[in-house]
Amino acid sequence: MAGGDDVLRQFVALAQQCLRKEDVMGRLGGEEFAIFLPNADGPGAEAVAERLRALVETQPLRADHHAIPVTVSIGVALCTRGDSAETVLKRADAAMYLAKQNGRNRVEVAESPVPI
Rank of each mutant, 00 (worst) to 15 (best):
A13I: 05
Q59W: 04
R104M: 02
G3H: 08
I74M: 09
A34E: 10
A94Q: 14
F36P: 01
D93Y: 09
A94I: 08
A34Y: 08
A92H: 01
A85M: 13
L55Y: 05
G75K: 05
V12W: 00
D93N: 08
A47K: 13
E22I: 15
K100R: 13
D83K: 12
L98G: 06
V70I: 15
K90P: 00
T80H: 12
P69V: 02
L19P: 09
E46T: 15
M1V: 15
S73T: 08
V56P: 09
P115E: 04
G26M: 10
Y97R: 07
V109K: 13
E108Q: 15
V72M: 12
A99R: 08
L55S: 05
V72N: 11
T71E: 04
V70Q: 08
G3M: 06
L8E: 01
G103D: 11
E22G: 14
L14P: 02
E57P: 01
Q17G: 01
K90M: 11
M25I: 14
L37W: 11
M25P: 02
E32D: 05
R81F: 06
L78D: 03
R53Q: 08
A67D: 15
G30W: 10
E86L: 13
P115R: 02
L98M: 09
P38K: 06
A99D: 08
E50K: 10
A45F: 09
D93K: 04
A47Y: 05
A47R: 14
A94K: 12
G29S: 04
V56E: 05
G103M: 11
G42Q: 13
A85E: 11
V76R: 03
M25C: 07
R104D: 03
V24E: 05
F11Q: 03
V114L: 07
P60H: 09
I116W: 00
T58Q: 15
A13G: 04
M96S: 04
K90W: 05
G4P: 00
N102A: 14
F36Y: 14
V7G: 00
S73Y: 10
